[in-house]
């Protein structure tokens, strides 16, 4: 659960037609963003619904860095006002689809960053971004050997030598 703190109105500049939200990253950076932009996040939407019961403005503390948060905001800004099937809670889950062209460029980052973005998107419940990241990660390892996969993903082989090399299968017919 995020920690919600009260903030002074003066810290949130008011402009435009959309309400403004104050997002606070784990490195304590304060980022003001229009509510419309972040409405793609079910997590943020649920938080905002909670705010409406009170008269105070609030900040939402998030457990990831401003670097990652800014990437997520960039994604949400790009698709502001767009309908994306994956983000529609009432739509049937979409089948496998390729990574959208813009997403491909947007997600052209190192593995470390890609993993942080997917984790943040998962936390914020932005299904379209989770889906794009998942497909981008899958594309990195598709068709690779086990050794190559370990190298690409930074995964250590934690099987015992016995598990890896034991004679274990037999043709009986």
């Amino acid at each position: 659960m995020p920690t919600i703190v009260s903030v002074d109105d003066s810290t949130v500049p008011g402009e435009g037609s959309s309400r403004l939200l104050l997002l606070v990253s784990s490195d304590n950076k304060h980022i003001v963003v229009e509510e419309d932009i972040m409405s793609r996040s079910r997590f943020i939407s649920k938080q905002v619904e909670g705010f409406e019961a009170t008269s105070q403005r609030h900040a939402i503390l998030l457990p990831f860095s401003s670097f990652v948060l800014n990437k997520v905001i960039e994604y949400c800004s790009h698709y502001r006002g767009y309908y994306l099937l994956e983000d529609d809670p009432d739509a049937a889950p979409p089948g496998r689809s390729p990574v959208r062209e813009w997403d491909q460029e947007f997600l052209d980052v190192d593995r470390n960053m890609l993993l942080r973005i997917i984790k943040a998107a998962h936390y914020l419940e932005i299904k379209s971004l989770v889906g794009s990241c998942a497909r981008a990660i899958a594309d990195m390892i598709r068709g690779k050997t086990t050794e190559e996969m370990r190298e690409i993903l930074g995964v250590e082989n934690d099987f015992t030598p016995e598990e890896e090399h034991s004679p274990s299968s037999k043709c009986t017919g």
Binding site: E162, E163, S166, S168, S169, K170, C171, T172, G173
Partner: peptide
């Protein structure tokens, strides 16, 4: 026809 004899 195969049977798998793995103990793992």
């Amino acid at each position: 026809h195969f049977s798998i004899l793995s103990d793992n």
